[in-house]
Write a protein that binds this DNA or RNA. Structure first.
Lengths: 125, 125
DNA sequence: CAAAACGCTTACGATTGGAAAGTAGGCACC
DNA sequence: GGTGCCTACTTTCCAATCGTAAGCGTTTTG
């Protein structure tokens, strides 16, 4: 906030900071994106759609997102097991909010790369 | 992207994912926010404004942000040392993009809390 | 002479993350 | 009837990361 809007209450500030700390996680953002993009998905599909995630982190992050009310988890008592994950409207809202970050990242990728090259060139050690 | 816009190229997708992975960091977002809010600041001021950060992580994150071209670092050769950090326009852009996330967090804090309570209540273990 | 100010840097223990193997349990195949 | 597969985890082990606390260098202040 702050840079975008009035804030005032330091307690709210602290709570929001805390919330950001838990939601601004690499895997959370990536999973949020694939679910926003592809709708309802099973465990293995999400794992395939999020490059580089381990099963452990996938399980852990999905649980956390479920706890925060960002996704729903539906278990079908069949064999082999089938579990479907989908965004709640809360999750959709966060996905929409992150949208700006994605667009920024896409638009500014070359500038970041250039900045990094320049930094590495001027920093020998 | 994806959920907000056309994407197509999987190479760009991978690069953006990678970039998100590095930028979607708790401390990066928090530092970005205080710099967007308060303008140019010195090392210790940022440390005070970001609750819970250690000097080590502050140094580390600031360096990373400098490398990515998000902030500038100006050193004044005086005693005691004086170092000023400020957002670049690239950093301002990212701050603006994150703005939506902050507003979402502020607006949905009670819903997240409620979801978490409900989850904890229904999950005994 | 001692302490404070500032921006780091280092050492070390605690937490987290990844890779790979294991689990459960019904079902297809030989 | 035994072997192995399918899926969604769970567990185990090891490496990377993180937080805490302390130290460093230089000059002013008491």
């Amino acid at each position: 906030m702050s840079s975008c809007e009035t804030v005032a209450d330091p307690r709210v500030q602290a709570l929001v900071n805390d919330l950001i700390g838990r939601v601004a996680d690499k895997w959370t953002m990536l999973i949020l994106d694939v679910l926003a993009e592809q709708g309802t998905l099973r465990f293995t599909r999400i794992g395939e759609a999020v490059p580089g995630i381990s099963q452990k982190m996938l399980t852990q992050t999905l649980r956390q997102m479920e706890r925060d009310g960002l996704i729903t988890r539906r278990v079908f008592p069949v064999v082999p097991p089938r579990v479907e994950y989908a965004l709640t409207d809360l999750g959709h809202g966060l996905g929409a909010a992150f949208c700006g970050v994605w667009l920024w990242a896409e638009a500014n990728l070359p500038r970041i790369d250039a900045a990094r090259c320049a930094f590495d060139a001027r920093t020998p050690g």
